[in-house]
Design a protein around this nucleic acid. Structure first.
Lengths: 220, 220
DNA sequence: CAGAACTTGCACAGTGGCGTGCAATTGCAC
DNA sequence: GTGCAATTGCACGCCACTGTGCAAGTTCTG
């Protein structure tokens, strides 16, 4: 009884596919989604999922492999025959975007672990400040970007994370990283590389000298 | 017996502080780190942690609040009295970086959920391709960046994630997003905004017409 | 030294997830 | 219809983690 929920599409293949699709969505919405959550979301019982995938890990592996393969293919196809680096990058990104867009709702939300979720939430005020700053810059013509200020603020935030990770992985010296990150943030906002570099050099010089009040913050 | 492990620094305050420090590291290395892992890493028994923080959530909250407060302060101080947007952004980022650097090992690694971890791992080959491409562009003078190619590849990857999230949050139209993201990637690599925009317009136009082979991919 | 504050070690109940086994049911194919 | 494959609905056992209680220590403070 009660087999009217989503209709029994049955015939394994279809179900397996559906499980994979739904699992992608569920898992990236919440990386800790349980097998039961996934199963229910797929309109299926937990036991059935185990019928298709021996373990949680196997399911995830299948998922990731598929996505990455699609991305790699798109990237390769987009770039074949193109020699100019800039055009190559452009084609690559555009192609990747099309694929990634399918996973957009998913991949992007994947960054929201419980922990990271909380952090970025409380970072919202900072981001708002930065957005306002960017808006001014765009209006004054100091910056140029097709992105709205708020989106640019997101970009800046993630950009800093990226540079941090680069430092962690030894791709970049920690001392240089701050200035490099700053220059990159400015250029990402559409400021020409030359002036951006000069500005950062000047400001960072200033900070190095006059800025040193030597005291520690008093608070806890 | 056996109280010789790390030496009993005792006197609560010190311990509480240490627990917070270590917890930050552990939690951001693995957002699902258990109270036991944290306690052990702090050279303390699980029960002791509960002596300082009533629950896991309370611990995390304390942590995040502290970090965010520090960041907000630094940002505010760096920007006071500065009117030029570009300089303001530069000062802000440099200041934030100093603070964030403390959490670098931590925050950056936070993105490595088990799920995300696997994804980015298998994305490595793609990233390597892109790094090589960027290297060429830098050599040829098409791109300009203080970052080494490999680090720039990280930046590009995260940048795409950022734009995806912006789309998800309704800050940006999905159709425009691909092109905007591409322009931003190019400018972040140091390409001037004007040419970047033109290039993307041309390429994306091309893709729109000639590129449409209308067929779906045959594979699974 | 005495007492207070803090830590430890152990034990406990509760919860929630994983992976498996098995019998019953449902649907598809021939 | 008969058979076959997949799905279902329970049933487990197992493990890891959370929070709490309590009786020992241990170390600092006065």
């Amino acid at each position: 009884m009660g087999a009217m929920t989503t209709g029994n599409i049955s015939r394994a293949g279809t179900n397996r596919r559906r499980i994979l699709d739904v699992a992608l969505a569920e898992l990236l919405r919440d990386p800790d989604a349980s097998m039961d959550q996934i199963a229910r979301a797929a309109g299926v019982v937990r036991r059935t999922v185990y019928g298709h995938f021996p373990s949680r890990e196997a399911l995830i592996s299948t998922l990731v492999d598929g996505a990455v393969e699609a991305l790699a293919d798109a990237d390769a196809r987009a770039r074949e025959g193109v020699t100019d680096p800039a055009e190559s990058v452009a084609r690559s990104v555009l192609a990747l975007w099309e694929i990634a867009d399918r996973y957009r709702l998913l991949v992007a939300l994947a960054q929201r672990t419980v922990t990271v979720q909380g952090i970025r939430e409380r970072l919202a005020p900072l981001r708002a400040n930065k957005a306002e700053l960017l808006r001014q810059g765009l209006t004054q013509g100091v910056f140029h970007s097709p992105l709205p200020p708020a989106a640019l603020a997101y970009v800046h935030e993630q950009l800093l994370f990226a540079v941090m990770e680069a430092v962690n992985d030894g791709l970049l010296a920690a001392e240089e990283a701050g200035r490099s990150a700053t220059v990159t943030v400015l250029t990402a906002a559409g400021m020409p590389a030359g002036p951006a570099t000069a500005l950062v050099a000047r400001v960072s010089e200033e900070r190095g000298t006059e800025g040193r009040t030597e005291g520690r913050v008093e608070g806890a």
